[in-house]
Design a protein around this nucleic acid. Structure first.
Lengths: 137, 137
DNA sequence: GGTTTTTTGCAATGTTGTTGCAAAAAACAA
DNA sequence: TTGTTTTTTGCAACAACATTGCAAAAAACC
């Protein structure tokens, strides 16, 4: 099993307390995390700024990816299928539960193909489904 | 052809300069607009706060809808298929061109069905495709 | 160990969104 | 049309969120 230092080293990043801790949060959580969540869990250990910079770095290195939401907040989730730097292929569907507000990466549900109009070329597709999750059913 | 006052009246809104002007921006633009865009185009005429409140009202009345983006900003676009108050059916795909950065509502491309895992119930689905648009081809 | 490079924390600053309230404008009714 | 009621606007203040420069601290390198 991959440890946090492994993952960091693999991405060519220095191994620091903050990075290990934040990476751990993702490894232990099944869903996606908002910046605010991470900040709350680490407030006593690190500065807000460090959280911003760490997340930014992780996105650049392809360790996590961003999930768009309609409420003007960004969610972050681990890239399960190794993403290269600056090149994410998170072709799975994200599910936001309207009851418990959790965001879940449906890793096994791939984004269905869409027929684009003529002269449009697809590079990436993201899909966000809202509804009720299995726990709130 | 529908004029701005028509649309406003139809939604039960008072007809004001700011609403007409902002609605016009949407009618004249083919793509989606960010709050910042609208603020820039109207800065000399209206207050920032008015822009916020106008957009909020338009969303509530089903005149425009929001498009989620990964960069922590919300885009707004006209609802082409009459949406009722608080009940949008913007089941179409949004396209973001990675070259010119324009966001386009592909009104004729509906969001394809997804098979969710057991015990997940879908309420809404949003899809954002990035790639190269017809103009940049 | 010492040296270089990277990361962190702090402070300051910028950006974005919200709220209360009085003035102005629009809608309404005679 | 005019006067009255209702809605909208602008201002100011504020709150939340995000970014930047720089010196100190920590990690990587040898």
């Amino acid at each position: 099993m991959k440890t946090q230092p492994d993952i960091l080293k693999q991405s060519g990043l220095s191994i620091t307390e903050s990075r290990k801790k934040i990476l751990d949060l993702f490894l232990l959580s099944d869903g996606a995390l908002a910046h605010a969540d991470i900040e709350k869990s680490t407030a006593s250990s690190f500065d807000r700024v460090t959280v911003y910079r760490t997340l930014q770095t992780f996105v650049e290195k392809g360790i996590i990816h961003q999930i768009p939401t309609t409420d003007n907040s960004i969610l972050y989730a681990l890239c399960k299928h190794n993403c290269e730097q600056g090149h994410h292929h998170d072709d799975h569907v994200h599910f936001i539960c309207s009851n418990c507000d959790k965001t879940i990466c449906l890793d096994d549900v791939t984004v269905p193909e869409v027929k684009l109009p003529k002269n449009f070329t697809k590079q990436q597709a993201a899909m966000v489904v809202t509804g009720v999750c299995e726990d709130c059913k």
